[in-house]
Amino acid sequence: MSIVLGFMAVVVGIAAWWLSQQRLMAKPWLETGNVDAYPRTESGSMPPAKIGMGVFLAVVGSLFALFTSAYFMRMGFTDWRSLPVPRILWLNTFILVLSSVALHCAVLAARNRRDDLVRLALVTGGMTAFAFLIGQWLAWRELTASGHFLTANPANSFFYLITGMHGLHILGGLVGLGTVTARAWRGAAADRLRLGVELCAMYWHFLLFVWLFVFVILAGWAEGFIEICRALLT
């Protein structure tokens, strides 16, 4: 459970930092009257949708932290046989990075009110993300073709489970991205479009980060780290 505890520590850290800004030590019964006398205590000015996205990403983060925690704990049992990493995953990683870059460009374009560029970047982002999903599916095919079936070994089961979960999240993101793109085509107001694009970009960057994390673990480069964790726990 060390991964998820590490994740929780980060979340608690962020929460503690935020709470420390909220005058939690103040004696509210002495602070009657207009709030202007007590600076930095109002609700923030950030759009709620962004805060909501941030909280949602924390939930997604918790989900993947738990999957990887389970992965590490299951890994300690004797029947574990690591499976070969399909080469195509490198290509997929590259494509997903491209996708994230494209959405970042979309954000920049939206800020500069370049509607044509926004559309181009959104479509590129969507297509590359879709290509990533196809790539992941090809990776699955390659593994099953070489006899690495879901139930043959827990390492395989986790590979399909975690990559599948990640793929489902990308798929969900594509639905959101699709709506934003459609809106961009219909010529939505720049401000509202910008918010939508920024939310997509946030989500994309986060899923890229999750993928890199998952990739490192599934490919077995984190073995040394896992050993340290296990030594700490036993």
């Binding site: 709620p48 949708a49 909501g52 969900g172 959101g176 934003v180 939508g196 939310l199 997509c200």
Partner: peptide
């Protein structure tokens, strides 16, 4: 959950 749409 897809909050991108509704949020915007």
């Amino acid at each position: 959950v897809d909050i991108t749409q509704s949020g915007a």
